[in-house]
Design a binder for these strands. Structure first.
Lengths: 342, 342
DNA sequence: CTGTTAGCGCATTCAC
DNA sequence: GTGAATGCGCTAACAG
């Protein structure tokens, strides 16, 4: 009856120590079948004595479920994503799931590689913020794989997406500038292959149209999404005649680059030009001047994204989803980088 | 010979389609045994045709290895950790490992829970930035579990730790202030249960001693590590007579809180008080004034932390590690928040 | 070189 | 209520 001390114990060790069969141990662990309380207690004691933790690998092989979800983000060092991931992790943890984290580095091939790995590891589902030229949607369809698109959403996806209402919040930011009397408004629109950027531009257009304001071609700069791209765009805008009196920026890296350029040229904000950007975080309040920005519901995006995935993972064939697309409201935090037009 | 279309295929399906046995398929996949190139090609074709990916769960059960490492951080939304995680993820990916991410929320019980989960999932090793009152070290020893402590290091750990040279970099920051002629230097030392904070304080003490400068009790504030704690400490310091002319801060949240308090009281930086803090990031350069800060080698910490873990996971019983403790140099980025004393 | 076989640790019928 | 037996998909002897 003596069990040799070992690094890892199996159900058989527990069963032997408790003087029962392995199926009784299994029944105690899973509560699947009634067990007399006396024996159940002996089993629990044996498990504790051996520091026994059921082998989830074996369990997964048997049940066909891993209780793991994959999360793929384009860049975990972009302050936006850790908050989303935190939301996922917390919701997942409560539901008994663990999170496999992958970083695609904004590269579609890396993304696809991660998708294959996650598939091979038999994760129960995937949350994905896809990158430009992503093939993930096709892969998902081909494999009939439970997946939720987060933040960045392929136009084709018929269900399983969660993102900020980017059209609405883009319009909100633009309307803020318009309400301050600005008419010559520029936009750094980012990478138009990505739904958030595309949608924010659409919102911008909508707001400008409503106000009967023209959008000059040279005031619309798109393409890159990095700090340097924002800096370049800033330089470009400052060279124009007439200059814009306000600039809207569709992500935080571009925002930073733009500020760099304005600072270098000693352009006063908001006296000479007002700026509003996307993605708020604690530091924005401490810039000089403090920054007006759109704050997305990052944490909630992660949490509800996981819940949506749970619905997809759990549904029967043919069953409908309670919600196919979740859109979250954003909030405009008005600070000192935006002011009345000249 | 016809294989019914299914969501997931097994090695048997591949074997049947290729007209070989499962062990041949296995041999092709693992390259463990030579296979004639003709048959190997047929196997590869069958795998591609079925979009077959070997079931890593089954493989893990068989081999006893999962090729997964766990990473536990106290707060993934703290900008320091995503960079470390990115370093881990990249190094891990290259070595064929995936990363299970857990967030302990600075709570020792949650940390222990995650550790149990990771253990049950049979991850091959764990990278841990532990929180105060962590029991992880004992758990590791008890289970003889491959583990590397990252950033936050238990004093007892005889090997398997990686962190910044916090004593040295604490001294470096303090010496910078001393070199500028400051004598009344205060420090927000953070939570002294955590090794980075404890070590930075030690470095501070060392530098002050070298310079024959006294450390007043009321200039040394420790305990919390949140933004509000930094704000409170700032208020406290401003009430003193004489006031310190320079303040050193041991993490980025406290730093932010301190800046808040100074801003509210309209204390001019660096004219009235110089400030230097820990953890640099892109935004620091855009504060008003730009912030002098110690930049840790975050990415490298992750990368080399994983490599250290690999050594631990791979070593034979009794074998020594090439390096037991890795200490990384930090860099002081001097900007405009520090200036000459009065 | 190739195929047959025996488990890895567990959950789950199925008899008792 | 309980235990013995089967197999999840794969790898690693082993025998041919």
């Amino acid at each position: 009856m003596a069990i040799k001390p070992r690094a890892k114990y199996t159900m058989r060790d527990v069963a032997r120590l408790a003087g029962v069969s392995t199926s009784t141990v299994s029944a105690v662990i899973n509560g699947s079948v009634p067990v007399s309380s006396a024996r159940a207690e002996k089993v629990r004691a044996a498990m504790a004595a051996l520091d026994y933790h059921p082998d989830e690998v074996a369990r997964s092989l048997k049940t066909g479920r891993t209780n793991v979800v994959g999360v793929i983000v384009p860049d975990i060092t972009n302050a936006f994503y850790p908050e989303v991931v935190r939301g996922v992790e917390e919701a997942a943890g409560k539901a008994g799931y663990s999170v496999l984290l992958c970083d695609s580095s904004e590269d579609a091939r890396t993304e696809e590689k991660h998708l294959n790995t996650l598939f091979a590891r038999r994760v129960d589902g995937v949350l994905l913020a896809c990158c430009a030229h992503s093939t993930a949607y096709d892969t998902m369809v081909r494999r009939r794989f439970p997946m939720v698109f987060v933040d960045r959403v392929p136009a084709a996806a018929p269900e399983g997406t969660i993102a900020t209402d980017n059209v609405g919040s883009g319009a909100m930011a633009a309307r803020h500038l318009i309400a301050l009397g600005h008419e010559r408004i520029a936009m750094l629109a980012g990478n138009l292959e990505l739904s958030p950027h595309r949608d924010r531009l659409e919102g911008f257009r909508k707001a400008m149209q409503e106000a009967n304001l023209p959008i000059r071609d040279e005031y619309l700069i798109s393409g890159g999404v990095q700090v340097q791209d924002g800096d370049d765009a800033g330089v470009q805008l400052l060279a124009l005649h007439p200059r814009p009196t306000a600039i809207m920026v569709s992500n935080n890296q571009l925002f930073l680059g733009l500020l760099q350029a304005l600072e270098r040229r000693q352009v006063r904000i908001p006296e000479e030009v007002s700026v509003v950007g996307f993605d708020d975080h604690v530091w924005n309040a401490h810039f000089h001047p403090s920054l007006t920005a759109v704050a997305q519901a990052t944490f909630e995006m992660g949490r509800r994204g996981f819940e949506l995935l749970q619905h997809i993972m759990g549904r029967k064939p043919g069953e409908e989803l309670p919600e196919k697309h979740v859109r979250l409201e954003a909030e405009l935090r008005v600070r000192n980088s935006t002011g009345r037009a000249g």
